[in-house]
C-alpha cells in the first residue's frame, strides 16, 4: 500500500515531459531555422549555410563577437580567482568582523536587477573618470560573476570532509600547505565549473554591458539586441546557433568536471 504514495505517477511523468519540451522546443526551432536557405522566415527554402557565411563576412558582428569572447575570458578568470578566495574566506574563515556584510555583498548580486548594477557601476566609472570600453565592461562582469563562482565553490567546500585538512595539519602541514595539497585538488572541479559559468554569464549579458561600455565597443549581445529590436534576421539565427554550440561545449566540459568531482566525493553544486 505504501508505495502508491511514493510511486512515479503518470501525472508526474507528463508534467516533467511537458516542462522539458517547453524549455527546449524554441531553441531547437531556432537552430533548425538557422539552416534555412530562404530569407523569409515563413518559407522553408531547404538546408543552407548561407547565414553562417553572412555572419563570417560581417565585420561589425565579428568585432563584437571578439570583444565579447575576450571580455568573457578575462572577466571569468578574474572572477574565478576572486570568487574562490571569497569562498575560502566564507567557508573556512569561521566568524570574523564584517562577515555578514561580506556575504550580503556576495549573495545579493545574484538576484539584483541588472539595471541597478549597470547604472551604479557606470556612475562609479564616470566619477573615476575611467575611459569606458573593454576594461569597464570586464570589471563589471567580474563583479557580477564572481558571486556565482563564490556560491559554486563555497557549496563544494561546505560538503568537503574537513578531517582531511585536519589530518594534513596533524601530519605537520601548515594551513596554506594543507590547503594547497589537500583541499585545492578536491575543489578544482568546482572551480572549473565556476569559470565556465562565469564565462557563459558574461557572454550572455546585455544590460550591464550596455551601461558600462563606451562608444564603438559593443559586445555581441548588445549587437544582437539592437538587431532583434528591428526584427528577426536570419543571420541572427546563425549567430545564436553558434553561441549555443559554444555553450554546449562548455556545458559538456563543466559536467565532465562535476562528474569528476562527484567521483571523488560528494556531488558538486547545482548552479
Amino acid at each position: 500500500m505504501a508505495h502508491t504514495v511514493t510511486r512515479l505517477t503518470r501525472f508526474n511523468m507528463t508534467s516533467l515531459a511537458l516542462g522539458l519540451a517547453f524549455l527546449y522546443l524554441p531553441i531547437v526551432i531556432l537552430v533548425i531555422y538557422s539552416f534555412n536557405a530562404s530569407r523569409l522566415v515563413t518559407v522553408w527554402g531547404g538546408w543552407s549555410l548561407r547565414w553562417y557565411h553572412e555572419f563570417f563576412n560581417d565585420r561589425a558582428m565579428l568585432d563584437a563577437a571578439w570583444m565579447s569572447l575576450s571580455v568573457a575570458a578575462v572577466s571569468a578568470t578574474l572572477a574565478t580567482l576572486l570568487g574562490t578566495l571569497a569562498a575560502i574566506g566564507l567557508a573556512r574563515g569561521e566568524r570574523f568582523r564584517g562577515r555578514a556584510l561580506f556575504s550580503g555583498m556576495l549573495y545579493s548580486p545574484l538576484v539584483m536587477p541588472e539595471v541597478i548594477s549597470g547604472l551604479s557601476l557606470l556612475l562609479l566609472f564616470v566619477a573615476l573618470n575611467a575611459e569606458r570600453g573593454f576594461w569597464t565592461v570586464t570589471i563589471a562582469h567580474t563583479t557580477l560573476t564572481m558571486c556565482f563562482v563564490t556560491v559554486v565553490v563555497q557549496s563544494r567546500l561546505a560538503t568537503l570532509d574537513r578531517s582531511l585538512e585536519e589530518a594534513a595539519m596533524d601530519l605537520g602541514c601548515d594551513p596554506v600547505r594543507a590547503f594547497l595539497l589537500v583541499t585545492l585538488p578536491l575543489i578544482v572541479p568546482a572551480i572549473v565549473a565556476g569559470w565556465m559559468l562565469a564565462f557563459t554569464l558574461s557572454l550572455d549579458d546585455v544590460v550591464i554591458a550596455s551601461f558600462t561600455t563606451g562608444p564603438g565597443s559593443a559586445t555581441l549581445p548588445i549587437r544582437i539586441y539592437s538587431e532583434v529590436r528591428l526584427g528577426v534576421k536570419p543571420e541572427i539565427n546563425a549567430i545564436c546557433t553558434l553561441v549555443i554550440a559554444l555553450i554546449a561545449v562548455i556545458i559538456v566540459i563543466a559536467s565532465f568536471a562535476s562528474k569528476l568531482s562527484s567521483a571523488r566525493g560528494e556531488s558538486a553544486a547545482p548552479l
Binding site: 576572486l82 570568487g83 578566495l85 571569497a86 575560502i88 574566506g89 566564507l90 567557508a91 573556512r92 574563515g93 569561521e94 570574523f96 564584517g98 561580506f102 555583498m105 556576495l106 548580486p109 541597478i116 548594477s117 547604472l119 551604479s120 557601476l121 556612475l123 562609479l124 566619477a127 570589471i139 563589471a140 567580474t142 563583479t143 564572481m146 563564490t150 585538512e165 595539519m169 594551513p175 596554506v176 594543507a178 590547503f179
Partner: peptide
C-alpha cells in the same frame, strides 16, 4: 581555528573588490 586565519586573509582581496565595485557605486547612485 589555525586554518581560519589564512582563510580570512584570502577574503581581503574579494572583500575590497566588492566594497569598491558593489557598495561604493550605490553611494554614487
Amino acid at each position: 581555528r589555525i586554518f581560519a586565519r589564512p582563510a580570512r586573509l584570502a577574503a581581503i582581496a574579494p572583500y575590497l573588490w566588492m566594497v569598491l565595485f558593489f557598495l561604493v557605486p550605490f553611494g554614487f547612485v
